[in-house]
Amino acid sequence: MSMYVIVSIAILVTMTLALARALKGPSVYDRVLAVNMFGTKTVLLLAVVAFFYGRPDFLDLALAYALINFVGILAVLEFFQSQRNDDEEQAKEQEE
């Protein structure tokens, strides 16, 4: 039992640190990085807690997160790149 507790405490502390990074920034990419890290740590936490509860069939949740967090991060990056690109083009248009 106790090893699950150790791992989950480590993961919880890391989640806190990631949250601190997400709040601090400074750049947007740091925040995206923190959100991604937070997501993967949640996957690990859910997996560990499922074992801690003695119901490993609940790993479905961690699986869902592992898949969906990725989509979220890609969507954020896609959005940010196109936004950047818009800015760039507007700057060009202004120069012209």
Binding site: M3, V7, A10, V13, T14, T16, L17, A20, M37, L44
Partner: peptide, 19 residues
């Protein structure tokens, strides 16, 4: 046991590094 503990250690290291 060893894998979980070392894994927890690396999680912590990564977290501290990221901050």
């Amino acid at each position: 046991w060893i894998m979980l503990t070392v894994g927890g250690f690396f999680v912590l290291v990564g977290g501290i590094g990221a901050l």
